[in-house]
Every structure is written in structure tokens, then in C-alpha cells.
Design a binder for these strands. Structure first.
Lengths: 350, 350
DNA sequence: AAGTTATCTGCAATCGTTTTTAGCAATTTG
DNA sequence: CAAATTGCTAAAAACGATTGCAGATAACTT
């Protein structure tokens, strides 16, 4: 009933376990034919746990994301999985944005995986430092833990992307430009705000404190932030929203408040979505290749697992693109094809 | 540098390995204080692989879905993860809808996990029968492999859901109702088509073969199917689309063809989406709780792992709900609140 | 055919735990 | 006070593989 062991196979053929083991590892063996047959007859499968115990490797890589349900994180996971190929299998942990769960999960990870691809929920965790001591391979994606240097990471070019977004609004003549931002303590939150501020400064638009709303990257957060902006005496005429979920929330708020986009308020979001061109109006966004980000993270990690920390940490960045649709107003000037989106820049840089 | 072993701890304290082991398992031990200290000092963590080898358990459950990137499957995965709690960790495999990859993945799974939650890409795989021989715990979700009985499963109530969708269109006065269906060989494809046909029959609407289009559950498939319907001499006035991705494709086709929804064609989809109320027009759909489906699958699986196959297989079903928005035409009659959606039925049945 | 290599083999140790067994000391009992 | 019970402990045997070592075949030399 239960699985046959290598010794069952050996016994059946009349050779030693080591011979069977060598046959399995591809060495030349005298009775290879009968061993092959015995393996098939007994439906023998090597016990992975025993193998792992001996080798000290697990053939598994953990991927920790705040939430698989967020299409952006799902794309990262998928990218990582594809890049892993047949060499490694994925252990998925979505922490539900709960730092405690995350910490507990990381603890339980030890010994189960050969490496970790890590999108931390908060930036001030320090569980991970335990790993650092053991030179355990970790690659950070999208966010980075602030007190740690010396780890590999694959980030988005948040500053440039946010600046492109803000400039796009400026190009449409807006000066009352709000920013619904992610947590200032987070890598993408901070980076995008920096890009936003830099673009304003360059255009000599003085910043209005009311127009900067720090939120939390959630749908509800975006909704509330937008409601807050709508309640202002002097409403902004344009808003740059710092991530996909907050953009959804902001749009819901606008719809509920019957505020027309883009006529009354122009909206640009960060991160594209399968449905972005079907929403009303089709959404102009900054996009970056999350799948690629996951894939780069995985290949960096595999390299690190293979070669250890003899090479300096890699800090990769994925480019941001401006995808123009209709939520920022007339786009006739920019349109060149009848396709409903146009990618202004692309490719990957390190 | 590398991890300390139980024998290091034992040596440091001056007791035997077994004593430390028993301390770890929660037994009463004389030098528990010094053992505790030694464990902390040495930063000792039990080697999971060794433990697994001894126990024959892995503490892992595999989840195989066609694509994590599909929000519906992501919700299943998340539901399963939540239900697993701290007892089991998830090994995720998304096969990219490639049956060969899927088969290979299942093969590599053996010995790595204690059970499997399985959304098969195709319905005629037979790898899984290997597992059946070993009474390996498997729970099917959403789809079921046709030549296999005797496994647990958690499906949606496809027939009822599809009938609700079709009836909703009929209630709006439509008789030329098309159905963009999933593969007839798949559980949800077949079930939803059955519901559609049953509703037509009950309303004494004779079915039009042109109005039944079998597609493949993808965005592109839905797009092409809708294009085909639009090319008909006698266009349908309403269409029921068999899953989320095909609905997106269909909407893109309609938008591209500048066909107004719902005035020229009413659309109802299967499976809700975070953005369904933001698309133009807000989409009326049949929805079911995918998160719950995943959670039920996991708890069924854990039960099965614990108790084995002494209990007969569970065949669970999750209810479908009609979420009315605006893609089927005027909804004033139905609206009772100013919320933009209304759930007509809910809860779970077995 | 005998000597020299080149291949292949089995034995035994090992990976780091858990668990069974038997034993020892302290406590309780008759 | 001897005997029985309790409460812990160490030693050893698993779990199922891989691998270094030394010995046994087989394959070449000359």
C-alpha cells in the first residue's frame, strides 16, 4: 500500500541499495534493465525527505507576498514560478498584510526551503536578520527592508514612473494635482511620492499639503482618501493614485459622488490591470512588468543559491511605462494608432 | 555558521539527544531550563527534513490551479491558505493550463506533500489515478476528472447559477439569448450550458444553434466568440458568458465594435470581480464565493488527511448568487437601496 | 595467460530526528 | 525494611536515502 523503498527494489533485483541508488543517479550499472523493471513493478519513488536530509537541499523556494489576491502580486508569483522552471517548486505564503503572521511564517520556513523571494508587508521587520546571519538567500521584490543592506532586490522604478504620471497631468494643464500615496514608510510609497514632488518642483508648481494624502495601499484607503479630497474647499483637478487597489477605491468614490472623470477630475493610477481599458472611463496608468519582476527575482535567487554570496548584491530595477487611455482627458494629440493604448517607454534596465 | 543540531544542544547541556527531543515535544524534563538556554544560545532549530523523514508527514499541502493570475483561482488559493491556518503550508503550482506541465508537477509532488487541492486543467488526465491507488488525499475544486469517482470535491452550483443568469435575461424580455460557453468537456462548462438550456426550455424558447458558442475560458476566446456572434445575420439581443475571462474578452469585442451595452446587447457574466461595478456599464454577474470554495476544500482535505478514507467522499457545492448591476438594462425595478449591487441569494449548501 | 587498469559492486557510515527499551533513582507502599 | 511504583534518563534502533572506501569483476595490454 504505502510506498516501496530503495531497499525493496534492491532486494527484488538482488543487488545492494547503493547500486540502485547509483542507477538512479545516472551511473552505469550492470543490471540496469532489471532494476528499471523492478522500480516499475514496485512503483518505487525515491523518498524526497530522505534525499533532502542527506543533501541538505530541499528543492523548494518560498515566495512571501502580502496577498495573492492582488493581481499585481499574483503576477509576481507567476513570474517567479515560470522562471523557476523544473528546478525548484514554490512554497507560497500570503500574509494578508499581517506582519505577525509574516514573522511566524518566516520562522516556520527555516529548513523547508533553499531560498526566499520576499515582498515584505512592513519595512521594519527584523525577523529576516536571522536569515542574514546564516547567509540564507533572500531576494526582496518591490519593497525593501530599511535597516538592511546587502540583499538582492528587484524594484520598480517608482520615482521615474511617478514623475511620468505627474508630468502627464501637468501636460494636460493641471496645476491642482493631488497624490493619494501609499505609506511613506514603504519603498514604493516613498519612491512614488518623491517622483510626484520632483515633477511638481520641476514644473514650479508649489505643493499644497491638502493635496498629499498618505493612505495604505488598500481599496478602502483609496476610497476614503478620495472622499477626503472631494470634501476640500478647493478640490484638486487631477489626482495621481499610488497603486492599483487605491485607484479602484478612488474610482468608486468618484463614481459614488457622481464626479465626472476626466472632466471634473483627471485620474492616473499606478499599475495596470486587465480591466483598465474597460472601466469608465478607460484608465490611464503607469505600468510595469510585474511578471518580469517576479522572474528576475527568481533567477537572481537561483544564482544566489548556486553561487552563494561571493558576488555583491544585485539591485535590479524594472522600468515604468505610461499607458495613455482616457481618464486624463483628451488624448487625441497623443494617439498615433487606433489601439486604445500606447506604451511610451519599455524594456528593462538594471 | 550552519545550523546547530540536537546533539550539539545535548552535548552542551550534558544530557542525551533523546532528552532534548522530549523537551521539544513538551514532555517534562529535569534540566528544562538549561536546555532552553542552550537552544537559544546555539540558535538551534530542529531540522524539518529529518523530522519529516521520521514521521512520514511533511506538513505541506499542494494546490494546483491553472493560473494564479486569474483572480478566481487566486481567491481559491487564498481561501485554502487561510483555512490551513498554522497546521499546513502551501505548495503552489500554476500549470499555465498546460496538461503536460500539470502531469509532470503531480509526479514531482509525490512525497513532498500530505495532500492535494486540485483544479485540473483538463478533465481527462489520468496521472491522478496513481494517487488513487495509494489512497493519497485529493480534493477537487471547481472541476472534476470524469473517469474518477470516490474523490472529495467542492464545486459551484453551475446549473442553478446559469439558469439564474438566463432567467434574468428572459425576465428582461429577451428571447434571442446567446451563450458563450466554456469547453463542453469541463465540469463548469457543461454545467453552465445545462443551466442555460434548462432555463430556455422552461421558458419555451427554442434554442438557436448559432447562439451557442463553445469557447475556452480565455480572454481571447471570449473576444473571438463575441465577434462571431456580432457577425451573425440575426444578432442575439443578450448573451450569457460562461466565465470571468471570457466576459472580459466579450466586453472588449463589444467596445471595439462600438456596440452599446445594454441597449443593443445585454450581457451577464459568470464570476464577479473587484472591478465589475466600475466597468462601463457596471456588469451584472452570477457570483459565487471562491474564497469559501478554497477554504472548504482545505478543511475537507485536512479532515481526509487526519481520518483517511474511512468516511465516504464529500461532494460539496457552493451556491451561486445573482448580482444585478446595469449590463442587462434598466434595473430600477429591482433596486431597493442606493448601493450599486444587490445579492439575491447567498449562503452555502452541501 | 598473466598483469595492469578501468569499472562496477557491497559494506558501512552518515544526514538529524523520534521512539522504543531498559535502567536507574527517588518516592510510595505493604 | 523490602517491594512496588513512579518519573525520569541514556542507549540504540529506526526513517530512507547517498557516498567514500576497499574489494571484486571485467576489460584491456603485451
Amino acid at each position: 500500500m504505502s510506498n516501496a523503498t530503495i531497499s525493496d527494489v534492491a532486494k527484488k533485483v538482488g543487488v545492494s541499495e547503493s547500486t540502485v541508488s547509483r542507477y538512479l543517479s545516472g551511473f552505469k550499472v550492470r543490471n540496469s534493465e532489471s532494476i528499471k523493471k523492478a522500480i516499475k513493478d514496485l512503483n518505487y519513488r525515491p523518498n524526497i525527505m530522505a534525499r533532502n536530509l542527506k543533501s541538505g537541499k530541499t528543492g523548494m523556494v518560498a515566495v512571501i507576498v502580502p496577498d495573492v489576491t492582488n493581481p499585481f502580486f499574483a503576477a509576481i508569483v507567476r513570474g517567479a514560478e515560470v522562471a523557476a522552471g523544473d528546478d525548484y517548486m514554490l512554497q507560497l505564503i500570503s500574509t494578508g498584510d499581517d506582519p505577525e503572521k509574516e514573522e511566524a511564517a518566516i520562522r516556520r520556513l527555516s529548513g523547508r526551503v533553499d531560498g526566499l523571494i520576499y515582498v515584505p508587508a512592513k519595512e521594519d521587520t527584523d525577523v529576516i536578520t536571522e536569515f542574514a546571519d546564516y547567509s540564507f538567500p533572500v531576494v526582496f521584490v518591490d519593497r525593501v527592508i530599511n535597516n538592511l543592506r546587502g540583499f538582492d532586490s528587484v524594484l520598480a522604478d517608482n520615482q521615474t514612473g511617478a514623475a511620468m504620471a505627474t508630468n502627464h497631468l501637468i501636460d494636460h494643464g493641471h496645476t491642482a494635482i493631488a497624490h493619494i500615496a501609499g505609506p511613506a514608510a514603504s519603498t514604493p510609497g516613498k519612491g512614488r511620492t518623491e517622483g510626484y514632488l520632483a515633477a511638481l518642483k520641476k514644473a514650479k508648481i508649489e505643493k499644497n499639503h491638502d493635496y498629499y494624502v498618505e493612505s495604505d495601499f488598500t481599496v478602502l484607503g483609496g476610497y476614503q482618501a478620495m472622499m477626503g479630497l472631494l470634501a476640500l474647499k478647493r478640490r484638486p483637478t487631477a489626482v495621481f493614485v499610488g497603486n492599483n487597489l487605491m485607484t479602484i477605491g478612488a474610482l468608486k468614490a468618484l463614481k459614488e459622488s457622481k464626479v465626472n472623470v476626466p472632466d471634473e477630475i483627471a485620474v492616473i493610477g499606478f499599475d495596470d490591470h486587465e480591466l483598465s481599458d474597460l472601466v469608465d472611463p478607460p484608465l490611464t496608468v503607469i505600468s510595469r512588468d510585474a511578471h518580469l519582476q517576479g522572474a528576475l527575482a527568481m533567477s537572481t535567487l537561483l544564482e544566489r543559491i548556486r553561487d552563494g554570496y561571493q558576488f555583491p548584491p544585485k539591485q535590479l530595477k524594472v522600468d515604468s511605462n505610461l499607458v495613455i487611455r482616457q481618464s486624463c482627458g483628451s488624448t487625441c494629440l497623443y494617439r498615433k494608432t487606433d489601439a486604445d493604448k500606447k506604451i511610451l517607454s519599455s524594456s528593462t534596465s538594471s
